[in-house]
Design a protein around this nucleic acid. Structure first.
Length: 191
DNA sequence: CAATAGATCATCT
DNA sequence: GATGATCTATTGC
């Protein structure tokens, strides 16, 4: 493995905003594919009406209220799946949407799964695109990302990163909050 | 280039 | 029965 150690559960046991910022630059790994996280969004729950968890515990949102470091994956627009990682201590809702990655391993697999992508920068520069490219589906709903097939690792060598906060994409409620985080100047963020 | 339509279904009202 | 944390192809300038 050309990456650093798997992130510990304590990493995720913080506010969703902190986890959203801290996940930038980390490495998402699924099977043979891997990519550097370059864009995230925080969904704190509670009074944030844009969060799925703001309407309470349902079959879909159950995992968001559980222990941190697990995958919340949901099906949207009849076609796409989006990957979140649960933050906050158990009992408190909150999660982070992974919106884009910079592919670093398994790029041929990603190309096969995303035939409509033109260049490498189009393989996973959006929440629906990255789950397709990496083969992530609702099968891993609730998966523990501190062990197993789907994990997040520290990068091989830490690099200095400049973070920019913007409004979240595609929501109608609370659209003014600056809860989307991107690596400044990175060309793999979504358009 | 920008704007828009269409695909397609789990979830919640 | 309407909606949605999206993406792609197509149309029009």
């Amino acid at each position: 493995m050309p990456f650093g150690p798997i992130l510990l559960r304590s990493f995720y046991s913080r506010s969703s905003v902190e986890v959203g910022r801290e996940l930038l630059g980390k490495v998402l790994v699924h099977g043979r594919t891997a990519g550097i996280i370059v864009e995230t969004e925080a969904y704190p729950g509670g009074d944030d009406r844009a969060s799925h968890s703001s309407r309470g515990i349902t079959d879909r949102t159950r995992v968001i209220f559980g222990p941190p470091g697990h995958a919340y994956i949901y099906f949207i627009y009849g076609m796409y799946e989006c990957l979140n990682i649960v933050a906050e201590p158990a009992g408190t809702p909150g999660c982070v949407l992974i919106r884009a990655i910079e592919p670093v391993a398994g790029i041929e697999s990603m190309r096969r799964r995303r035939p409509s992508a033109r260049g490498v920068e189009d393989l996973a520069n959006g929440p629906g695109k990255l789950t397709l490219a990496m083969g992530i589906t609702r099968r891993q709903y609730g998966a523990d990302v501190t062990r197993g097939e789907l994990v997040v690792r520290a990068p091989a060598e830490a690099r200095q990163i400049e973070i920019v906060a913007t409004p979240r994409v595609g929501i109608t409620h609370c659209a003014d909050r600056l809860l989307r985080f991107v690596i400044a100047g990175n060309r793999f963020v979504s358009k």
